[in-house]
Design a protein around this nucleic acid. Sequence first.
RNA 1: GCGCCCGUAGCUCAGCUGGAUAGAGUGACGGACUACGAAUCCGUAGGUCGCAGGUUCGAAUCCUGCCGGGCGCGCCA
Length: 589
Amino acid sequence: MKPLREKLSSLVAEAFRTAGLDPSLGEVVVSARPDLGQFQCNGPLPAAKAAKANPRQIAQAVVDRLAHDDVFRYVSVAGPGFINLSLTDEFLATHAREMRSDQNLGCAPVASPQRIVLDYGGPNIAKPMHVGHLRAAIIGESLKRLARYLGHDVVGDVHLGDWGLQMGMVIAELARRRPDLPYFEATRSGPYPSASPVSASELEEIYPTASQRAKADPGFAEAARQATFELQQGRPGYRALWRHLVDVSVAELKADYDRLEVGFDLWLGESDAQPWIPPLIERLRAGGHARESEGALVVDVAEAGDAKELPPLLLLKSDGAALYGTTDLATLDHRVRDLGAQRVLYVVDKRQADHFTQVFRAARRTGIAPPAVGLEHIGFGTMNGSDGRPFKTREGGVMKLRDLLDLVTAKARERIREAGVARDYPPDEVERIAQLVGIATLKYADLSNHRAKDYIFDLERFSSFEGRTGPYLLYAAVRTRSILRKAAEAGLVPGTLAPAADDVERGVLLTLARYPDSLHAAFENRAPNILCDYAYELATAFTRFYQEHHILSQTDPARRASWLGLCDLTVRVLLQVLELLGIRVPERM
RNA sequence: GCGCCCGUAGCUCAGCUGGAUAGAGUGACGGACUACGAAUCCGUAGGUCGCAGGUUCGAAUCCUGCCGGGCGCGCCA
């Protein structure tokens, strides 16, 4: 089925056409002045400019050709030449009925689905996930669900940071602490113990320590570089040790992502790209794309019109080691050739914008990414503390994701106790509800910020349950379900939607009709905050409705059944949008 | 220095491919629980959209300059 706005736009476009005007100007949008109409068309203004005519006369000419009494209740020309449109309640109700019987709730899949690889992880082995990883995970998860819902074929890859200098740091630090471990015997080639020599908690502590040591001690920094190089060269002890580190770390990461309800289809990492690097380098050398510069091997990426000079992408350091960009190019090569990606989206901190410009350009020049393959860096803003500086805990350290989740969940538990509503629920259900409320709070608070903007990480805000928050949306959905449940207990079933009887009910139907628009806008702009806005608007419109109209005590059976139908459609749309945000709703709360 | 991003109500933020009277939440104030759940709803107050020009019938939105803040700029990821 067609979205409401498209139905209206094609009617108005047809009127433009018969008036001898450009039909593309007939686009209809939701009115900015609800007191004057439900929808508006601004097309007469640009049409008048093109025709050097009076816009109000143009608007009137269009209106005169717009005779659809079954669709429009009211059509008028206003201001400098706006066309205001309001629908008949019958037409609006018919549209809502179609939505209700459509399996996609009126949001048709895209015309040309693509295979999309979405890279939204980037957690580092040996570093605990902290609040900085939150955004990539939840923005990426939402975009993945949205793209999939719209019909795209999406592969989500965690793209682990499991290679490079950080691994060398951990190895060097371990060698310092426990030189007697068999992994450090230079001549040995195995076998090695099957159990990891380090625990998850030790691993979390070891990297920060090593990183600080490297800053203070040039000798240690050199040892870390050397270890990195030898790991890359395949030194058996280091490889065996590395395997342990990865396994221990991945188990922890999976637990954190599970708790966040963020999932990946692929658990590949930078290390998986390493075997692809030597042949790729050969290809680039043979193709004349790579050149020596200051001892390193580089691909030039500067272009004539650049506002600033972009340094070349470094493939190999002067010591022959591969770098970040090299791994990214090799990974991209794999995604295009082996995974068949038609579009690759990178949900990564926007501070890496230059890096992605380099990688994308290098990929274009070298043919790794043919022109038909879309490459996008979906940058997101930095998370700061309330002082506007990068976020730190009160003790000055980074806050672990796990601690944040615990904190929000504890707040949710407290709130549930205060509200007293779940007094007679089993304790394990209360706990499940607290988890869901915590996740909803966190995700909604983060996703409702525009993706690209820096934002203040405010614990108060992240654990607020009132107003425009995740819990508000859960509450709205749960209460609506509760009405349907009580109706079912009384033997009442949702029925055919009747035309709206007042502005509040009309408002719900109009908001429901915007559902496909909001999904498409959210995906096209890679902006989940558009979904957040929509979910909130739908929830408030409906909450207002049931606050003003008592559904179960309505004595007219047809009206009562229609209102229950409205509950049914609203809750289905709301649950779907929440699912696209990665927010799950409890049965009751 | 060069480049990118940001500056909207006391606070936190939407709105930015130009459209009419700039919206939410929060905080403040006032109202609504003998009916489907008050984590709710209704209302009031609150704005030189950083500043100055420009383009346009029309600018928070586009362009230029300035002020303020953040970030990035070759061998870390």
